[in-house]
Write a protein that binds this DNA or RNA. Structure first.
Length: 601
RNA sequence: GCCGAUGUAGCUCAAUGGUAGAGCAAUCGCCUUGUAAGUGAUAGGUUAUGGGUUCGAUUCCCAUCAUCGGCUCCA
């Protein structure tokens, strides 16, 4: 379950030697698997981001021992320096070669018809049918490959896991067994990659969430329903207060809306027609059906519609931490990243066509500033444009896309255009941030909606005295508080910046006689608004420091005889850095300054 | 939802067809400590839940639930 992407160093991966290497490794693996299971059927085996996979239809499930055996056999094949031999064939010749391979036969049909490559991906031209032979293995394949298997470094490959995958990615098709492997140019690269995986594992928000007592998910409550513990709740509280302040200072109005709404509302919005499978079953009372809200939009629209709007009232910006419930299939739930009840930092903008470009400019720069406040400085964007099937006035689409692109250019943001990738109801910008490990996560979305204004018959009165349809923009900066929290945990590896740290400092008295002084220091710091705890267990100072360190508390304040005498605290950062003994007032000033500046680290 | 794996103390893990143990954490003492683990004792488990096989199940079988790795889908 990958919610993030690694940034590729190679500009054109498909043309790189690494790509060839991985593709070749996939063939070697397929050969090893077929030797072990001669009756096995092969599907496809392409390189992927950090390695490669191959899908098989095999008589029995593979075990970890099988993988070891296959990997060992791969090394033998590599050692044999088997050449990869390219050959172009006709469709009929190909059918003969792969007569026992039904999946390949299906691919050959596709190739012959044209329009798709040997992996079933759409291509412009009708591809040439080609095969690659190496040793005993023949594959329907466009290549390119290495010259021979010996160019694969046997110490730079590793089979990672086996998993189920649907033939051609369609859940109505049979499920195949997919073996994931990784392959690198050198053993050092492999080692580095495995190290990366381990680092990522250490940061896993599910692990840190428990260790730092941030949140839990209880069987008794239900899957995908998050319980925010006091420390996690503090981080959310601080994030939300900041969020509210920023919105109020930037022309938003805060609104609150209920968690359920009548069936008719969801009928009007189209959710019951197009989104029903993700909605919880209705609650019935007094002959009315109510649904838990999967989105906030209809409520904000109803607020808009509660009065007649003039062009003078626009733009209107309604913002809400809106908690929604979506039924997610059991297999997709994942810690905080994918849950069934979550709070979106939602907002809807309503404006006139004339205001629209400026409104987009505003929302983009507002988003960027906001993300930077949380320590995300590397941001890039996706611009998704009109798909073939779309609702709304084409002129409006064009204007909206132009405004989105112009804003991206003004913001000097790197972006990619996903032609036709927009939703049927409007174009959008998605913002991606890069975390401390270089992983990319999609957070913000700024999305036009040409559907709802129509469905809800929204209007404002223009200068001409006539009703006009407003532009509606939906946006979320953090996405959902749950997912954002998960990303934040992993980005900081649990070591939150001072302004977000649930406990900012732990006071560590050396002996019992220092506890009274420690209490006085704590009261002083708390009065200044700092979140401070006193560790008065009868453990040794070293043990208390170790615990505070493990809890990633930003400051440890040691107080002993010397400090007590001089009204000082001995300040240690969680990094291990010693700031030495400081007067309590100096520490207070230092900490408050860091908080105010939202310093990271 | 699908494929595969897993489910034993708060956490990380052992063990067994004859009703379970360790380390850490917790609790209670002793020690009163100078920048990542002082020390002793105590307590803690219907072995996920429900069935079945068996003289006997935590262990074997089935179902359910949950979690993990993927697929599909997504904030």
């Amino acid at each position: 379950m990958i919610f993030w992407r690694r940034i590729k160093m190679v500009e054109k991966y498909e043309e790189s030697r690494l790509y060839q290497l991985r593709h070749s490794a996939a063939h070697v693996m397929a050969q090893a698997v077929l030797e072990k299971f001669p009756e096995g059927k092969v599907a496809i085996g392409p390189p992927v981001e950090d390695g490669f996979y191959y899908d098989f239809d095999l008589p029995r499930p593979l075990t970890p021992e099988d993988l070891e055996e296959i990997e060992a056999r791969m090394r033998e094949i590599i050692k044999a320096n088997e050449p990869f031999i390219y050959e172009e064939v006709s469709a009929d010749q190909a059918r003969e070669i792969f007569e026992d391979q039904p999946y390949k036969l299906e691919l050959i049909d596709g190739l012959e018809e044209g329009g798709v490559d040997e992996h079933g991906n759409p291509v412009d031209e009708k591809p040439v049918i080609s095969i690659y032979k190496s040793d005993t293995f023949v594959d329907l394949c466009r290549g390119p490959h290495l010259e021979h298997t010996g160019q694969i470094n046997p110490k730079a490959i590793k089979l990672m896991s086996v998993a189920g995958a649907y033939w051609r990615g369609d859940e109505h098709n049979p499920m195949l067994q997919r073996i994931y492997g990784t392959a690198w140019l050198s053993p050092q690269d492999l080692k580095q990659y495995l190290q990366f995986l381990e680092d990522a594992k250490k940061r896993d928000h599910r692990k840190l969430g428990r260790e730092l007592d941030l949140y839990s998910i209880s069987d008794a409550v239900g899957s995908g329903l998050v319980l925010w513990h006091p420390k996690g709740a503090m981080i959310r509280y601080l994030s939300e207060r900041f969020w509210e302040d920023e919105h109020l200072q930037n022309g938003y109005d805060l609104v609150y809306t209920p968690h359920i709404g009548k069936a008719d509302l969801w009928k009007t919005s189209g959710h019951l027609d197009f989104y029903a499978e993700n909605m919880y079953s209705p609650i019935e009372i007094e002959n009315q059906q109510y649904f838990l809200k999967p989105m906030n939009c209809p409520f904000h629209i109803e607020i808009y519609k509660s009065d007649i709007r003039s062009y003078r009232d626009l733009p209107l910006r309604y913002a809400e931490m809106g908690t929604v419930y979506r039924y997610e299939r059991s297999g997709v739930l994942h810690g905080l990243m994918r849950v069934r009840g979550f709070t979106q930092d939602d907002a809807h903008h309503f404006c006139t066509p004339g205001q629209m470009p400026e409104e987009i400019d505003f929302v983009l720069s507002f988003s960027l500033n906001f993300l930077r406040s949380f320590g995300f400085n590397e941001i890039s964007a996706y611009l998704s444009t009109r798909p073939e099937k779309a609702v709304g006035d084409p002129e409006r689409w064009q204007a909206a896309e132009a405004a989105l692109e112009a804003s991206l250019k003004r913001a000097e943001l790197p972006y990619e255009v996903d032609q036709g990738g927009g939703a049927f109801y409007g174009p959008k910008i998605d913002l991606k941030i890069k975390d401390a490990l270089g992983r990319e996560w999609q957070l913000s979305t700024i999305q036009f909606d040409f559907n709802n204004p129509e469905r809800f018959d929204m209007s404002y009165i223009e200068e001409d005295g006539q009703p006009h349809q407003p532009y509606m923009v939906h946006r979320a900066l953090l996405g959902s508080m749950e997912r954002f929290f998960g990303i934040l945990i992993e980005h900081y590896a649990g070591a939150f910046p001072l302004w977000l740290a649930p406990v900012q400092a732990v006071i560590i008295p050396i002996a019992d006689r220092h506890v009274d002084f420690a209490r006085a220091v704590m009261a002083d710091l708390k009065a200044a608004g700092l979140r401070v705890k006193l560790d008065q267990r009868s453990d040794r100072m070293n043990a208390k420091i170790r615990d505070a360190e493990k809890q990633k508390v930003p400051f440890m304040l040691v107080v002993g005889d010397r400090e007590m005498e001089n009204s000082q605290v001995d300040v240690r950062r969680r990094s291990g850095e010693r700031l030495g003994a400081l007067p309590v007032a100096d520490f207070k000033a230092l900490a408050l300054k860091d908080v105010a500046e939202k310093l990271v680290g």
